[in-house]
Nucleic acid binder design. Structure first.
Lengths: 187, 187
DNA sequence: GTCAGAAAGTGATGTATGTCACGGGAGGCA
DNA sequence: TGCCTCCCGTGACATACATCACTTTCTGAC
């Protein structure tokens, strides 16, 4: 199970077995059932999560009760409410399981200690943060420049497996269109 | 001039004068006039830029010739086409001066060398990348959940100085609405 | 197998926003 | 002064999309 993390980290840096076994001790494994919350809007956010298997959604619910999906976190994704996590403030988002999931958790303190002990890991996280930033920018561009249909096609192209795994209602909440509009696009 | 960079870095980490003077040698200063391009869509992106003074826009021009603004880079901002910069591919965006600007430039090679020589700087860049990611996520949320008027008011609140510095046409291109719609919001 | 709830399609209608066209004002420059 | 360009406002009209209401299909629990 923890081997998934090793494989993932070694896509970017190389580690000895000893190093990795020490690194892995900064994490702990937790299993969640479909529907369970890892983070609830308004509560503390003690961990950042790494998805070994399963699928999560990061959502923000507005005053009118409408759910907006900031991201789907699949295998090999890091996710949390980063602002709340780093600043120790209350979550502005919720993180919820769409499937039964195996998750590695790391606390803020352990995260800092890990980076101090292993500068290579800081390098690893920098690359992850950078590519996350690039991906967000791409999404902003698609929201600025594409209509609903183009955004939908782009999503299918980038994550073809998603359409099998989540109901269209959720894809709509990710794309920023109504369920009905998305339904009419397909026809 | 280079002191702006020192002050900026020291908001996050602390450096001796010697360390900083060595760090600063990885950068060089360049002045740009209003209207000049730091990056042109379709060309190489040899540098990441730090804005000492002035104002830039990071834009993507679509097939129909319409400009979309990914960000305004003001004093103390780091900006480039990150994807093109890190992967040494051609720029998908342009970076252009909205005012005469003083800019520090760092090449990819120097960036890597700087991070290797000064792990503290890697830590600094990690924090910057993280907060950039958080800010992008906030922007995605506002595009998903707010209408044009709310987005405009949010922008004014976050960057009240912008409205003095850039024409409304550009604010519209940032918010993802037409110039005309934005104009009608104010009335 | 039955039933309740979720998911998905679809019609009618309302609305926010885009597009096109025009005019007026402010500022740079010969 | 006159001219040109950019910026901004505004009216008329088109359209993409939201919302509401209804129906059908699917699925999972018992």
């Amino acid at each position: 199970m923890i081997q998934e993390l090793k494989r993932h980290i070694e896509e970017i840096i190389t580690l000895t077995d000893d190093e990795f076994s020490s690194i892995s001790s900064y994490f702990f494994l937790q299993k969640f059932k479909k529907g369970e919350f890892l983070i609830r809007q308004g509560t503390n956010v003690p961990y950042t999560y790494f998805v070994i298997s399963g699928l999560l959604k990061l959502i923000s619910t507005d005053e009118s009760g409408k759910e907006h999906i900031l991201s789907f976190a699949m295998e090999d994704w890091w996710e949390t409410d980063y602002l709340a996590f780093y600043t120790k403030t209350k979550a502005k988002m919720s993180l919820q399981c769409l499937e039964d999931s195996d998750i590695l958790c790391i606390s803020l303190e352990n995260y800092h200690n890990l980076c101090s002990a292993y500068p290579l890991m800081e390098h690893f996280f920098l690359q992850k943060a950078t590519s996350g930033h690039i991906a967000s920018q791409q999404r902003i561009l698609s929201l600025l420049s594409s209509d609903a249909k183009e955004r939908y096609e782009g999503l299918l192209k980038r994550y073809p497996s998603l359409i099998q795994r989540v109901p269209k209602t959720l894809l709509a909440a990710y794309l920023g269109v109504s369920r009905e509009t998305l339904s009419r696009l397909s026809s």
